[in-house]
Structures are given as C-alpha cells and as structure tokens.
Design a protein around this nucleic acid. Structure first.
Lengths: 231, 231
DNA sequence: CTTCTCGATTTTGTATACATATACAAAATT
DNA sequence: AATTTTGTATATGTATACAAAATCGAGAAG
C-alpha cells in the first residue's frame, strides 16, 4: 500500500489524523474486504513515529472509520450501504433539527446566504454539473448545521465525516439533482417564512427521499455487507 | 493438570479511559472554572505511564469531556446548562428516531421488556424513590436505543456519556417523576400498537418537556456559562 | 503598587526502547 | 497424512527519553 508522506507541520497527530482520514476515507469507499493497517508502516510512509499515528488512530476509531482488535491492530472496514442507511436515518433527524432551529433563530440574512450557495445553478445546471452541484449541496447542509446555533450539533455532524464521504459514491448513482434542487428551494422558503415546523418537515423529507432511493439501490446492486463491531 | 490462569490483563488505555471518564465526569458536574489536567499527574495517580493516559484522553476529547489547547494540555470544562440544553435538543431527535424504529421493527416482546424496566414502580414509587427511578429511566432509554436496530445510533448515543451524567444534576431539581411515569407508559403503548408516528411524537415530547423545564431553570438559577470550543 | 522582562522549571509533543501477545511455519506426534 | 506442538518472527501495548514550548516567579522598570 502506498500513501505519500505528509508535510511536517504544527501538530503531527492532527496532520496524521487529517491525512489518514482523507486517504483512508477515500479508500474505504472502494474496499471490498477489510484492509489491515500496520502502525509502523503508516508511520514510515508518513515520515513520523508511531506515537502520533496511534493517537490519530484512536480518534478514527472513535469515529468508526477503523476497527481495532486487541493485539491485532487496526483494520479499515469497507463502508457498507446498510451502515450508510443508518447514517441517513440519523441525518434525517439532525437535519430536521437544524432546519427547525435555523427557521426559529437564524440570522436575518440566513435565507439569502443559503440561497447564495446555489446561485450558480439552475435546474438544468444541477443536472449538467453533478460534481459541482454535489459540492454546493455539501456546503448547503454544512451551513444549515452551523447556523442552527447548536454547537454540539456541529460537532456531532463532523464526527460522521467518513460516512458523508462514503455517501458520495452511492449518491452519484442516484442522480436526483433535479428533485434535490426543488427540495432545497422549498426548505429555504420555509426558513425565509420563519416556519420551523415546515422547515423541519421538508428537511427531513429531503433526506428521507435520498435514503429511500439509496435503500432501493441496496436491492438492485448487491453491495458490501455488514461491518464488524468493535469488541 | 489444571492450573488456574492469572488475571487476564486488560488494556491499560481502556482502564484509564473508564477511570478518567467516571472521575472527571463526576467532577465536571461540580465545576465552576476549567480544571487543568496534567498528564504526568494523572498517570502517577493511576499508576501507569503517560502513553495510555494520552490515548484515553484522545477519546475523551472526541467525546467532548475535555478540551485540548496545543502545548498547553487538557482542561476539564464545567458542563454548562446551555450545552446540556443543546444535548437535549439532539436527544429529542435521536429518541424520536429510536421510538419510531422500535415501533416499526422491534421484536415481538419489546413492549413487554420496556414495561419490565418499570415493573418495580407505580406512580407513587417514581416520586418516592427518585434515585432508583432515575436508574430505571436510564435503562429504559438505553433499551430503546438498543432495540432500534440502528447500531450507529447506539454508538452516537454512547459518545454523549458525559452529558448524560451532567444531566443528573439538573434533573434532580426538576423532579418530574410523576409526569415522566405517564409519558413512558404512553410511549410503550404506542410501540405495543406499532404506531411509529405516535411513538416518535411521544418520545420527542417526553424529551422536549424535560428540556423546557431545564431551560426554565436556566433563568431561575444562574448557572455556569459557555464552553470553550476545541480549536 | 503594577506591569514587564527574562530565565528556570514544568509540561507537553514526539521518538525510541522494551515487553508481551499473536501469526506463521516447520517439526514432532499420533 | 492429519493434527498438534513448538520455535521464531512480527506487531502491538506500554514505558521511558529527549526536545521544544509554555508557565511561573523574581526582579527591574514604570
């Protein structure tokens, strides 16, 4: 396995954490079998000692990206669609909460700022430039979470980073850009009108529709199985 | 020939994690100012080296119990009521999801098992033995989360351990045992009837009422302020 | 009396060393 | 020949060592 070394900067453990998260997160999405991770190997490739690698790995373990078996080291598990669906269930609730809070307590210009995220797109554009639209999509949801004013919600959200990444793979297949476009618009509308119930309902439906389609594709394609649980 | 095995040695980092979580969790609830934590001091008190202490601290950081400032070590922050309210907002959503899922997919006997948790209590008992009732309460919610079938939900739930602990302090004041008693009963009822919408609604309301009362007490008592964010 | 500066001390961040458990394979036993 | 045993290699878990940054206090300056 080859991952390029990182540039030595302020705190190695944080650099290592970020580096591993990105590299391993990407790799997990394309994985079919668990991949063993050797501390020394990772340390050598990143050009650091085992200590910061281990500390970074603890965090990744906590986030669920890797699994530890005592004395046998860490394994990078393939991200399963079932697990991704679990995440979407949770995400439905969290985004519902965020939308509600933004509608209730958001700054005056919050609807405008949300709209600005999609300024470069019309309905056709959302379909024509799926990669860019996906990025805007991510930005939209991140902004919602941030503007909710619930700092703990933001932290919780961030800790699911690897699952968000895993999602990209599945979402690409679904290509529901057009529907998504209207749904976002409706959510922003409800927020502009300061209607928390409606904002929550729409935000939840938005995620639920995505989940339903992802779940449907579970039957169509036969995708990687269950994850191991940390013992 | 059979000689009994010597005590199987667990992993220090896990022992340290548990020990610190309990000790610090308790202390955080009574704290008014940040408490500096020295690695060597903790290591010495627990009789281990700094390494497992550091690894345990990474996990506690991830869970939000302690905050790190680069080169300045860890600090245990007082758990603020505002942060606890944020948690209750999130918890409302997570419990709502759990109740929905249990009503939808729970095992046949799940309502009975939930009821069994409160078997020792009637309405008067809930008021008369608040400590025991609080324990049953915790068990009830944990069982719901577990029975939801969403493993990721369980993990997420567990990672908020310190906030749950912090809650005890506030909840003691509220003493809403009697209302709580009926609310639990209604939730179980909705689950027994396999009514996911109603189960979710009731579970959410249950938490929201608690939150409302906690929020009200924020104005009454003047409680510790905001938490620092991890930089 | 307060504030600022500078150096000694403390403490963290990282690297390395050592102990012990697991993995793998060859040899021995049945 | 199949299975068990045992030896060796390898990787993890923990402890220790060392370097660099932050803290603390004494003394000088205002």
């Amino acid at each position: 396995m080859s991952i390029s070394p990182i540039a030595a900067r302020p705190y190695l453990r944080d650099e290592v954490y970020t580096a591993l998260k990105v590299r391993l997160g990407v790799r997990a999405a394309g994985l079919t079998a668990p991949l063993r991770l050797r501390e020394e190997e990772l340390a050598a490739e990143l050009g650091v000692s085992r200590t910061p690698v281990r500390e970074a790995m603890r965090r990744l373990e906590q986030e669920g990206l890797i699994t530890f078996r005592p004395r046998r080291g860490a394994r990078l598990m393939p991200t399963s669609l079932p697990e991704y669906l679990e995440w979407l269930s949770i995400r439905e609730m969290l985004e519902g909460l965020a939308a509600r809070e933004v509608a209730l307590n958001g700054a005056n210009d919050v609807a405008l700022r949300l709209q600005a995220v999609f300024a470069d797109f019309d309905e056709a554009g959302a379909l024509a430039r799926p990669a860019e639209y996906a990025a805007a999509n991510t930005a939209f949801h991140a902004l919602m979470i941030k503007e909710s004013g619930n700092a703990l919600l933001g932290k919780t959200w961030d800790s699911f980073g690897h699952l968000k990444m895993a999602g990209l793979r599945f979402i690409e297949r679904l290509n529901r850009g057009s529907q998504s476009f209207h749904e976002h618009h409706d959510i922003i509308d409800a927020i502009a009108q300061r209607d928390p119930d409606r904002a929550e309902m729409l935000a939840r439906r938005h995620v639920r529709l995505l989940r339903d389609q992802a779940a449907a594709s579970l039957k169509e394609f036969d995708l990687p199985g269950q994850n191991e649980t940390t013992p």
